[in-house]
Amino acid sequence: MDEPDGQPAEDEAELVHGAPSALSRGQLVVFPERADYLDLVGLLYDDGYRVCVDLTGADYQPYMERELPAGVTRERFEVVVNLLATDTRRRIRVRVQVPEADPALPSIFQLHPGTEAMERETYDMFGVVFTGHPDLSRILMPDDWEGHPLRKDFGFGRIPVQFKGAPPAR
């Protein structure tokens, strides 16, 4: 298949603004430390990655052995940010490790105001707290909902199928 993202072939484990990077199926991925995350997004912003296309999370609780570049500590949560540079037509993905004990991450709302809803969604679904977010409330679930549904230890919520009021067996 053609390479849709127009990424040039880059060597693995090259540093992008001091953070380790890797190619995943030809797509450039950066793995900053949590402390460097805000700065990195800012530097990438100056590089032309002006559009934050997507921000979401992932819970790796039962899959901690996933492949990460050397030097990146595996943590339970990941926040995944997809950035786009419209003038060079390139994409980059930022994956930040967020520990379970302190699931907090600075908000990039100041740089990319469009992430407001996405960060709220990630908070709602994974319980990752974005510090500096103007209005961190639930967005998809009811306000009094308990738990964060997309966490792997949150039950699927399946209930057995019941046939109520069905005619009795003959």
């Binding site: 949150f154 699927f156 919520g157 399946r158 209930i159 199928v161």
Partner: peptide
């Protein structure tokens, strides 16, 4: 059949 959907409007 999951956490989000009411299993039958009845």
């Amino acid at each position: 059949n999951n956490y989000a959907i009411v299993q039958g409007v009845d």
